[in-house]
Design a protein around this nucleic acid. Structure first.
Lengths: 217, 217
DNA sequence: ATGATTGACTTACAACGTAAGCTTATGACG
DNA sequence: CGTCATAAGCTTACGTTGTAAGTCAATCAT
């Protein structure tokens, strides 16, 4: 009955990877200590030898997802670097949509992502941003990327109330909303992301040039 | 022993308000059917006469928080309107920081906020944005506001590992990160929000003028 | 060989969401 | 006034959860 061969020992690493597997295939609320243990052929309580508690597993999930982000390639300009980073972050988040709620609870910047932060800061500082501006820029970019990805890709459970209301109530009272119904059909959420990303970058660039101009006179 | 006087009857409204009270003072994970019932002097199961289940309560919380957003005042330009809306949304979210995780799971636009959406769309369309651009603009703004507020105001439980790492490891390996340590002390997250908001607005405005120019030639 | 350490398993408990059934107050209608 | 339907509360019960506490077998240093 018992797992016959000498099994490889448990570890934080293996636990997190098993947990990520469960979350990816069954959703965030599917993980319980017993479920993760079962995935590893182990009792729930055995996990406590390697992780402090369930919250620590969620923290770890957040961490290993973020660690999937590829190292930044050498970019020509800070604009390109920021854009690349934003897209890379979005891709990582989209790869594990069920973990997205985690990013709403935990601080976005973590030791795992510090390399990316350092690289981005370096470029921004050299481009002429002050330390504070560079910090703001990064935080604001992350906020946008995470915010937009969470909004668009959080797996919505099949609630039936919210959808139909649009077509019915809105014709005369909300003409502009009604107008969107047709648009929504062919609306591309990736285009929407790029739309926001470009706006953000353009705004940051404008700020930088204005800043340089005011310093020089 | 029993609650003596004829008590006023339960209702979805009362349940949600009680739940919001619990969440505001004790945090999101403090709400359980029994806890909310206790708040109203009622058994847990009685709540099921007015709400479908716990998820419905969370949906309702989301809803009544969003409903606190004040009606938009008549704004001079779409820029001012967007800025006002963004700040108003942020204020509402900040007023109930414990509910912020809810905004990561649920769709941002809800029947409760449709009036604001309609008003904003009207202004954007009149300013020259296409229907799709107006939709993108709104979604992107909401994503930024929610994303940034969640990142900055989600009540972080007192985890002790993440903080001290900064000062230690970063001096030579991460000089730019290290540079931030001093900045962080006097860093103002509201300024940071305004920084991002202005960048976003500037970028959107640039897009609009470019669009008008290209249509005219 | 022996003793300590590690890491698994077992048991147990309180709290959770909620299904099912029961009880009581309200109000319509003969 | 009596009857009875409906509504809205209460009670009990079940399965699942996170995890504290205790047990036991394997590994390893001496």
């Amino acid at each position: 009955m018992r797992q016959s061969n000498k099994r490889e020992p448990l570890s934080r690493e293996r636990i997190l990877r098993a947990a990520l597997g469960v979350v990816d295939s069954e959703g965030l609320e599917a993980i319980s200590m017993r479920r993760v243990g079962q995935e590893l052929g182990v009792e729930a309580m055995s996990l406590y030898n390697h992780v402090a508690n369930k919250a620590a597993i969620l923290d770890g999930l957040f961490e290993i997802v973020l660690a999937e982000m590829p190292a930044a390639t050498k970019a020509a300009t800070w604009q390109v670097a920021l854009r690349d980073n934003a897209r890379a972050l979005r891709l990582v988040l989209r790869a594990h949509p069920h973990t997205l709620p985690l990013f709403a609870t935990r601080p976005a910047v973590t030791p795992a992502s510090i390399i990316h932060v350092e690289a981005a800061l370096e470029l921004l500082r050299k481009a002429g941003f002050s330390a504070d501006e560079a910090l703001c820029t990064l935080q604001v970019m992350v906020a946008f990327v995470v915010g937009h990805t969470v909004a668009g890709y959080s797996p919505t459970r099949p609630e039936e109330e919210s959808r139909p209301a649009y077509e019915q109530l809105s014709k005369q009272d909300f003409p502009r909303v009604h107008e969107l119904v047709a648009v929504l059909a062919r609306h591309d959420i990736e285009k929407e992301f790029e739309f926001g990303l470009e706006a953000m970058l353009a705004g940051l660039e404008a700020r930088l040039t204005r800043r340089k101009a005011s310093r020089k006179e």
